[in-house]
Every structure is written in structure tokens, then in C-alpha cells.
């Protein structure tokens, strides 16, 4: 579907370093084709809402990251919290894309 105007915020916490990082991307700041590609990743990621526990994952790996993903459009404002070890194949491309933009 055609991308709405959107704002994405990814916050990464913990890991060995414990230094929180964040990345914020707004469709208004992006070229139309880039925002469309990114929105496709969002749609894929949200097919099954991020969060919960990975299959067979009794406890998270020590020093794994935790994430907070916020998706804002004219019609939605949703926040998802999840652990690195629960990031599956649908969510991973979006997380990896946003991680390219992480800063302190």
C-alpha cells in the first residue's frame, strides 16, 4: 500500500555497553521512493506485532539488547518493546535498517 506520512523511532538499550542509542526517521525528510521502501519494511515487521518471547527462549542471552520501536502515522501511534533474541525474520530487516541511523 502507499506509504502514509510516518515517523519511526527506534531506541536501543542495554547490551554490554549499556549505552542507550536512538534513531528517528520521518517520511517527510525522505525521498518518496525511500520512504515507500522503508514503509514496506514496517508493514512486514508489523504482520506479527513485535514482542513476547522467542520459541524455546526461557531467558534472554546476557547482554542482549532491548528495543523500543514507535510507529506514528496519522492513524496510529504504537509502541513495541522487545528483546534482541526475539527479533525474527519479519522484524529484522526493519531493525537493521533503523540501526544504521542510531546515534547517542
Amino acid at each position: 500500500m502507499t506509504a502514509p506520512s510516518f515517523r519511526l523511532l527506534l531506541e536501543r538499550h542495554g547490551g554490554f555497553a549499556g549505552v542507550p542509542l536512538r534513531a528517528e526517521l520521518k517520511s517527510a525528510d525522505m525521498a518518496a521512493d525511500a520512504s515507500q521502501r522503508l514503509w514496506t519494511l514496517v508493514e512486514r515487521a508489523l504482520r506479527s506485532p513485535p514482542g513476547g518471547t522467542a520459541p524455546g527462549q526461557v531467558r534472554p542471552p546476557a547482554d542482549s539488547f532491548t528495543y523500543r520501536l514507535t510507529v506514528v502515522t496519522p492513524d496510529q501511534h504504537d509502541e513495541y518493546a522487545f528483546d534482541e533474541s526475539t527479533v525474527g525474520s519479519e522484524l529484522r530487516p526493519l531493525v537493521q535498517q533503523l540501526e544504521q541511523h542510531l546515534t547517542m
Partner: peptide, 21 residues
């Protein structure tokens, strides 16, 4: 940018913001 223990082994990244772990 991390290192972790996954229950069986230690895992080390090469780092970007940080040097290799």
C-alpha cells in the same frame, strides 16, 4: 556493537561506535 553470552558460548562483535569487543 556488543558481546554477549548465549547460554553456551561467548559472542563478540567487531564494533562500530566501539572498538572490537
Amino acid at each position: 556493537d556488543n558481546a554477549f553470552w548465549n547460554g553456551e558460548q561467548m559472542v563478540f562483535g567487531d564494533g562500530r561506535l566501539f572498538k572490537r569487543f
